[in-house]
Simulated scan of single mutants.
Amino acid sequence: MMLFDPTIFDNLKVALENQIYDLDNLDERIRVVDRVDKLDMAVMSREFALQFVLAGAEREKCVKAEVKLDTTLRDLATELLELQEGDPPGCRLRLLYHLSVTNVEVQCRLIEEAVREKWGTELLLTQKLSFIYGEESGRYSNTVELRFNRRIDEEQINDLPELLEHMILTLEALELL
C-alpha cells in the first residue's frame, strides 16, 4: 500500500492555515474574512490564500491583509518525480494589503514608507490602484503587494510565525494612515 506523501505546497498550506486560524480563534488578534483554495486544472497549478483584518476592525473601512501561496506544475513535477536538474522545487509566497486611498500622491508614499519600515527594502513592493469608471467618489482601491525574491519550502516553516507577526504589525501601521 502506497502512502500519500504531502507536497511542499501541502505542508506550507497547512502550516500557514493553522497559524492564521490560531491568531483568529485562539489569540483573537485577527479575523479571517476570506479564503481561496484553488487547483487550476488547465495549467495544473495550485493557489491558497487567506485574507484577514484586525480583530474589532469595521469590515467596510478596514485594511485587509492577504497571504498567498502558489505553486506551478514544474515545481510539483520536480518534487514528485524527484528530478535533480534545474531549480529545486518550492512555492511562491506573496503578501498583499487591500485598502482605499483618496489622495494618491500623499497616501501611496505614506503606505510605501510604512511598509518599508516593517519589511525593509529587499522585497519587491508594488501598489496597484483601481477605480470604478463613472463613480465620482474620489476613492481608489489600492492593492499593496510584497514579493519575495525566491521560492520557499519546508525549511521556512519555522519563519512563518515571525512573518505573520510582521504582517499584523504592518496591518496595524496601515490602519493608522
Rank of each mutant, 00 (worst) to 15 (best):
R74V: 13
G86L: 02
D75Q: 11
R74N: 13
L69V: 07
D75M: 07
R74W: 11
K68A: 13
L80T: 14
L69S: 07
L83D: 06
E85N: 05
D70F: 14
P89C: 00
Q84Y: 02
P89D: 08
L80F: 13
L83T: 05
G86S: 04
L73F: 15
A65I: 12
K61T: 15
E82N: 05
L76D: 04
C62S: 12
R74H: 14
G86H: 03
E85F: 06
K68S: 14
V67S: 08
L76V: 04
G86K: 00
G90M: 00
K64N: 09
C62F: 06
T71F: 10
V63A: 09
D70N: 12
L73Y: 13
D87L: 03
E85R: 00
T72F: 06
L73P: 00
K64D: 09
T72N: 03
T71K: 06
L83G: 02
L73D: 05
K68C: 14
P88T: 01
G90T: 07
V63E: 14
L69E: 06
P89G: 07
E85G: 02
V67A: 08
C62H: 05
L80A: 14
L80R: 10
E82I: 01
D75K: 03
G86R: 00
L69C: 05
L83M: 05
G90Q: 05
K68W: 13
Q84W: 01
P88H: 00
C62T: 15
G86P: 04
G86N: 01
T78A: 11
T78L: 06
R74D: 15
V63I: 13
L76Y: 01
L73C: 11
E82A: 05
E82D: 09
